[in-house]
Structures are given as C-alpha cells and as structure tokens.
Design a protein around this nucleic acid. Sequence first.
DNA 1: CCGTTAACCTAACAACGATAAGTTAGCGGC
DNA 2: GCCGCTAACTTATCGTTGTTAGGTTAACGG
Lengths: 211, 211
Amino acid sequence: MTPATRRARARRGEGELLRAEILEAAERLLIETGDQGAVSIRAIADAVGVTPPSIYLHFADKNKLLAAVCEVRFQHFDAFMTEATAGIEDPLEVLWARGRAYVRFGLDHPEQYRILFMTRPLTDVAPGELDRLPGLAAFGHLVDEVARCMDAGAIAAGDPFLVATSLWTAVHGITSLLIARPDFPWPDLDRLMAHLIDVHSRGLQGPAPAP
Amino acid sequence: MTPATRRARARRGEGELLRAEILEAAERLLIETGDQGAVSIRAIADAVGVTPPSIYLHFADKNKLLAAVCEVRFQHFDAFMTEATAGIEDPLEVLWARGRAYVRFGLDHPEQYRILFMTRPLTDVAPGELDRLPGLAAFGHLVDEVARCMDAGAIAAGDPFLVATSLWTAVHGITSLLIARPDFPWPDLDRLMAHLIDVHSRGLQGPAPAP
DNA sequence: CCGTTAACCTAACAACGATAAGTTAGCGGC
DNA sequence: GCCGCTAACTTATCGTTGTTAGGTTAACGG
C-alpha cells in the first residue's frame, strides 16, 4: 500500500486540525483492524497523509495518543448510560438499565473497552487528577443510584460503595470475558443479563453483611 | 547488562533441556518485570545464555512460547481449585471455596491470568482440540458442582451451564479488574468476596428464570 | 517583498520478531 | 583413534517498530 495522498499543510494557527485528524484515523484503524498492535504510528501517519514524526507534534508518545482516543470515546460513556435510564422511575430498574447499557457500550466499542479496562493504564495517573480517570464520573453516578435504591428500600441498606463496586465487577466480568473469549460457547447475552439481574435483585434484598 | 555467561551446549539427545530453561526464564522475566512487552525473545535468550534464534528451535514463534508458559502454569489451575474444596461437604460451600480459590489464583499469577483471560487468545484454537483450552476442564468441574447444588436443593433448579457461566463472569470480573486497575480504591478483597457470596447465595435460591 | 516561525519533512537510531545459512561438538561405527 | 553424521547451536541480516535530531517549506505581518 503506497502512502495515501499527501495531506495539504494546515494554515497558520490551524495546526490543531491535524490533531483531530490523527485521533479520527487512529480510532478508525483501531476499529477496522480490531488489533491494537496493528495501529502503528506509521499506519496512522499514512492514513492521515503525513510522516510519522508529525504525530509527535501533537502527542508525546503512542500511549498518550491511544489514551486520547479512548478518552474521546468514553466522554460519551457516562452520558450513554444515563440516557439509557431516562424516564425510568423505579430506582432498581434504573440500576438494571444502567448495567445493560454498560455491557452494550463495552461490546459496541470492544477495542476501546479493552484498552481502558482490560490492560494496565496507558498513562500513569498523577495523584490529584484522579477525577480525570475515565469512567470515574460514571462510577460516582452508580454509587448514587445504589444509595437511592437503599433509601427507597429497594435493596437492603448497607455500604453503597461496596455494592456499587460489586455491581461494576459483575458487568465488567461479562463484558470483558465476552470480548476476550468470543470463542467460548456463550449463552444468549440477554439470558445471561436476565440471570445476572435476577440473582442480584433477589440477592441484594436480604440483610447486608456487617461493614 | 552484558549477556549472561554462555550456556554450555546440551549433550546429544538432551536438546529438550533448553526448552525447559526457556520456559523457566520466560516466566521469571514475566513475573519480575510484570510487563508482557518487556519479555522479548532477546531478553529470554540472554537470560538463558543463548542467542535469539535458538528459541525458535523449540517454539514456532513468540506467541506459542507465551502460550506454553501459561499452559504450564494453568495445569495447576484446576487442581488448585479442587484442592481448595477438599473436605468440604456442603455443595454450596464447595462452590464458594472454588470461587475464592479462583480469585486467589488469578491474583497470585496476574501476568499469566492477563494473558489467558484478558487478551485475545495467543494461538488460534483449532476446532476439535477445544478440550485443550486452558481452564476448560476447570469450567466443566464448575458446571458439575453447580448441578450438584441444584440436585441437593442448595440452589434453585435451572440451567447449570447458565449459572456456571454467570459465576465464572462474576469471579473473573473481580479478578481482572483488580489486576487491570490496581489504582482504584478497592474495598477489602475479603469484604468484596463475602458480599459476592452473600448476594449469590441468596440470589441463587429463588426461582430460576425460564430457560 | 522580506523575515519570522508554525507546520511540517528527511534521515537515522536502537530494539524488536523472525529467517537463512553457516559452524561446533557429541557420539556411534570401524 | 579418528571419521562422519547430525543435533545443537551461532552469525549475519531482514523488515518493522517507536522515537528523536535537525533540516525545510510556506503562510502571514510588516
């Protein structure tokens, strides 16, 4: 594959345009190839119509680039889950809708999900900017909804953080295994999710363990 | 680091010795560096005291080597979990003991767990040798134990495969997230596991959803 | 039209996985 | 004792990767 047509140089002050084009091309390659390893700096540069070093004018290294790609995608993560719960009154149903949305989002964006939640963090998170952790806002909302369920008596009173963490690991378990082991003879996803919700809706109503 | 002292050539018919040394060195590097990317063919060869091409006398490529490393480790996987349930009478307690052992094993061998269950399969599994899938025997035993619980009336009757799959995703969710996101402010693991077991022991006793 | 500088490119490095082709040394046979 | 076969390696090299140093082009203010 010969290099794509050379990209026209941006006008003065418009250098940031390249950054956006790089992000777009990188995500497109990530989705098309389905392989993080195939998304090389050279392949991205080629897709954009630019030489490899130009990438480094906008991203310190490859990890930062991939992190940026995922950050863009996951800005929609929390919003997507919140939308999925719009108009639902029952706080317990809100929880289940959120869980279903989580799994769906992960399976719709498997490569980004893999980078964000199935590999070690690409960029070390400095203490103090923990709030910029992707998905942390979403987790906060989950804790809130769990607390709301407890207040409404929909689930047994207890530690909302502990319950939220457990719910997170539950939906992550399904999402990540489906992504990592697609060759396993999985039962129908809807059945699996229904069972998960069934178990939890019953299991969370009993007395919580002592904190 | 200069190359380690050169390894003495194996005697005739003892070429397989090198294979074992390579596997050992590869796993040691994997554990010490904690980074799959740092385990290069050259680093392994250096650790063994041999040149890189010698690796290929025993392994077709790097993926096959890493797969072999994990296979060795996971030959103990099912046995470890079975041992953890030895002497337990209550079939439900057997299930929980197995779950605890699963998480412990994963956290004790995080890099191998990551390769086996958190990345796409290193080597494509040919149809017909599905039974050699690492951990599949272990999964079979899980299904058996779930069925035993159903027979004993410890959990509601239903599809043992569905329930076993769900339990697998549950323990995998905890294990894999703990490995991938060690920086998250996790609650105490024992508390998390106790909550998981609490929820499931209650949730699995109600009527199962229709198959 | 000139000079500044933003926006790139050319050339190259070290490290990687992998391969082709050569070399060394253990050991049975005479 | 030493010859030859070949198992057990090595040397040299290829193409690709992430990344950097330093040079070049062209848009725009004056």
